[in-house]
Amino acid sequence: MHRRNVLRAAVVGTGSVAFGFTMTRPSFAAYPVQTGPSPYGSLQSADANGVLLPQGFTSRIVARSSQTVPGTSYTWHGAPDGGACYADGTGWIYTSNAELSAPAGGAGALRFDASGNVIDAYRTLTGTRRNCAGGATPWQTWLSCEEIDLGYTYETDPFGVNAAVRRDAMGRFKKEAAACDPDRKVVYQTEDVSDGAFYRFKPTTWGDLSSGTLEVLTESGGALTWRTVPDPDGSPTATRNQVANTKRFNGGEGCYYAEGVCFFTTKGDNRVWAYDAVNNTIVIAYDDNLTPNPPLSGVDNITGATASGDLFVAEDGGNQEICIITPDDIVAPFLRLSGHGSSEITGPAFNPAGNRLYFSSQRGTTGSSSGGMTFEVTGPFRS
Rank of each mutant, 00 (worst) to 15 (best):
D88V: 10
S66V: 05
R167A: 04
F263R: 00
S38K: 05
G108C: 13
F198V: 01
F249E: 00
A258V: 13
D192S: 06
V313W: 02
G71I: 13
C145I: 01
T128Y: 02
L100V: 12
G135V: 04
G341E: 14
T58K: 15
N289W: 11
G268L: 08
A305K: 14
S383N: 10
F375K: 00
M373P: 00
S360W: 06
W206R: 03
A197N: 03
T90K: 12
T58Y: 14
T213M: 09
Y86T: 01
F198I: 03
T126N: 15
P37C: 05
G116L: 07
S42F: 08
V377D: 07
N293L: 11
S369F: 13
G20D: 11
Y152N: 11
L110A: 14
G106Q: 04
A29N: 06
A9L: 10
T24L: 12
A305V: 07
L43H: 07
R184D: 12
F249G: 00
S45Y: 12
W92C: 03
A305L: 14
L52N: 09
P54R: 06
G268E: 07
D300Q: 08
C323R: 02
G371Y: 02
I61G: 02
T281S: 10
V377N: 07
T190P: 04
D316K: 10
E155N: 06
Q34T: 12
T72D: 05
P333M: 03
A29F: 09
V272R: 02
E321R: 13
A223H: 06
Y188K: 09
W92L: 02
D113R: 12
Q140L: 09
R123E: 10
A277V: 02
P294N: 07
A177W: 00
W142H: 00
I284L: 15
N279W: 14
T190A: 08
R271L: 03
M373E: 15
T14P: 12
P80C: 13
D329W: 02
S220T: 09
G254T: 08
T14C: 07
W76P: 00
G15Q: 09
G260E: 07
R130T: 14
P380N: 10
S65N: 05
W139D: 11
V278E: 15
A29I: 11
S342N: 15
A79S: 08
A98G: 13
P37G: 05
A307F: 05
A10E: 15
E315K: 03
Y275E: 01
T95H: 01
G317Q: 04
Q320M: 12
S361N: 05
R8V: 15
R271P: 00
G127T: 04
A177I: 11
F57C: 11
G82D: 03
T24G: 09
G196N: 05
T95C: 11
Y86R: 00
T24E: 12
T90C: 03
P232R: 01
P333S: 10
V17S: 05
T378F: 13
T218F: 03
A307W: 01
G134M: 09
S101G: 14
Y257I: 05
C323I: 10
I93Q: 00
P54Q: 13
G221V: 07
Q189C: 12
V331H: 01
T205V: 15
A305C: 11
L337I: 07
L7P: 03
A98D: 05
A104H: 12
V313T: 04
Q67D: 08
G127Y: 12
